[in-house]
Structures are given as C-alpha cells and as structure tokens.
C-alpha cells in the first residue's frame, strides 16, 4: 500500500487538473444572467463532502470520529437541500416569465 501512495496522489493530481480545465470552460459558458443560480448549484454540489462525512459516521458504536461525521452529514445536508432548492426557486423564476410573455404574445 505504502509504495502506491505516491501513485495514488499523482492520479488524484491528474484528475484535479483535468477537472479544473473542464470547470474553466464549462463556467465561462454560463450566461451572466444565471450567475446567482450558478453559485447556488456549486454550493450544493460542493457539499458532496457528505461522502466523507458518511464514511466517518458509518461504523457502529459512538466515538469522536463518528460524532464529527454525523455533524458533517447534518451540515452538508443543509447545503445540499438548501442549495438545490434555492437554485430550483431561482430557475423557475426564469421559466415563469418566458411562458407568460409567450402567452401574452
């Protein structure tokens, strides 16, 4: 295992830089009008650290690590639900009015 750890790190680094490049191009394609929903979505998806929190909260019994994990799960859940919902609310506003104008026309 130990011998592989540097390799694992390099793979992680590769993934990291490729993801940064993807992020760069994807985010520049976001229309400025939707920059607020963009923050909502990124906020929600950054809470994917819930994955780490679940691993920590996973084992049975109670120890320090598990408590930290559960707190992490609660915090991340607030963000996941809150982030996606508030984004949903924002985006449905961008929908409503186009429909209405079409109806008006």
């Amino acid at each position: 295992m130990e011998a592989h750890s540097s390799e694992v790190f390099v793979i992680g680094l590769t993934v990291f830089f490729l993801a940064c490049i993807i992020g760069y191009y994807v985010v520049w394609s976001v229309t400025p009008a939707l920059h607020s929903p963009l923050m909502g979505v990124t906020n929600a998806i950054s809470s994917v650290i819930i994955v780490g929190a679940i691993l920590a909260a996973g084992p049975q019994g109670f120890d320090t690590s598990k408590i930290f994990g559960l707190i992490g799960v609660v915090l991340a859940s607030v963000n996941i639900f809150g982030g996606f919902l508030v984004t949903y609310r924002m985006l449905s506003m961008f929908k409503k009015k186009t429909k209405k104008t079409k109806e008006k026309e």
């Binding site: 940064c20 992020g23 998806i45 950054s46």
Partner: peptide, 16 residues
C-alpha cells in the same frame, strides 16, 4: 480520502 468525485467536484466549484 483519495476520492476522485470529491476532487472533481471541488475543482469545478473552485474554478467556478
């Protein structure tokens, strides 16, 4: 955690 999902998502959000 050597977790690619977290690395990718973090990088996306960071870049954004």
């Amino acid at each position: 955690l050597s977790n690619n999902l977290l690395i990718i998502t973090g990088a996306l959000v960071g870049a954004s």
